[in-house]
């Protein structure tokens, strides 16, 4: 293609957005390697202010409370490996459960014929409009009466079976699969669930991956609900643990360095996943089948 001024400008705009997206991550790293007390005085330095690994030591609990306080942190630390395991268990279980159960329901809504189907689908979809804050307290009470407060299943349950979005998303895909595929099987006498697992699900790998990744990331990053029901050490997930580093007013300034270090650490597992599956993740985002 020829190089015109228009194309140069277009590339410049594109790179501007790429930089605007990536540079804040550098700033996160730079802050995380700084001495919190020195940040205020060196706000314009592009390098870490008084380079130190202190913030990371604070996050992993390797610094004594006295050392932490001297660098402007708090005595609190993250039991990183425990919270990492909790986050992994919750995010994996929710992803598997939600994608599977939502796909099954979506198939019933898209392809099976039964009375009241469309009405029920509309009702399910209506749940998309219920503000999460509205259901959080009743759900909290439900989880409490199930005796699952401060347990990982308690954190998983509300999103383990379905979300309206997941059903909507998968139904859209199933609607686009040519009728001939499952009808042929049906004429052979195969039962619907068999068709679903043997034929429909395997050819739906792309949307299932997309939905799975979206669900995993959403669950991993969820903050409000796990904050309500997972308060103990044993049930804390990484995002909730980050709350420990939140601002300390009126005791003083936030431990920005520690906070950024903790944020990086919390994001690390997702980043690693991303580095490994990056290409697949990016290519999977789309409307495969949605017309």
């Amino acid at each position: 293609m020829r190089l015109t001024w228009g194309r140069v400008l277009a590339w410049a705009v594109l790179w501007f957005f790429v930089l605007a997206t990536v540079l804040p991550f550098y700033w996160m790293l730079r802050t995380a390697l700084s001495d919190n007390h020195a940040l205020a005085a060196q706000s314009f330095s592009l390098l870490p202010a008084d380079l130190t690994l202190g913030p990371f030591e604070r996050v992993f609990g390797l610094a004594t409370p006295e050392e932490a306080l001297a660098e402007g942190g708090s005595g609190a630390s993250l039991d990183f490996w425990l919270y990492l395991r909790n986050s992994l268990v919750v995010a994996t279980a929710v992803t598997v459960g939600q994608v599977l159960f939502s796909s099954m329901a979506a198939y019933a809504f898209a392809r099976l014929r039964w009375p009241g189907r469309d009405a029920w689908f509309a009702v399910f979809l209506g749940a998309l409009l219920v503000p999460p804050i509205f259901t959080s307290l009743p759900n909290f009470l439900t989880v409490k009466s199930l005796g699952l407060l401060n347990t990982l299943p308690g954190i998983m349950l509300p999103s383990l079976f379905m979300t309206p979005f997941a059903i909507f998303f998968m139904r859209q895909f199933f609607l686009g699969i040519p009728r001939e595929i499952d009808e042929a099987a049906m004429i052979d006498g195969a039962k619907p669930w068999r068709i679903f697992f043997r034929i429909v699900l395997p050819i739906s790998a792309a949307p299932v991956t997309t939905l799975g990744i979206l669900t995993f990331v959403t669950t991993w990053n969820d903050y409000f609900w796990p904050l309500l029901v997972g308060q103990t050490e044993q049930s804390k997930v990484l995002t909730v643990a980050l709350g420990v580093f939140r601002s300390q007013t009126p005791q003083g300034a936030p431990d920005w360095a520690g906070l950024m270090a903790a944020s990086l650490v919390a994001a690390l597992p997702v980043m690693v996943l991303y580095a490994v599956f990056g290409r697949r993740v990016i290519n999977s985002i789309g409307f495969s089948g949605i017309k």
Binding site: A105, R113, P158, P192
Partner: peptide
């Protein structure tokens, strides 16, 4: 022929989640 039976089986888990964690809390709210 209506496929109500298989359909119910397939939406059962999602319906459980919907009733307990969406519909019920909405009504309670």
């Amino acid at each position: 022929r209506s496929q109500l039976g298989p359909a119910l089986v397939m939406i059962a888990p999602a319906a459980l989640g919907f009733l307990v964690f969406y519909l019920y809390p909405t009504l309670r709210g």
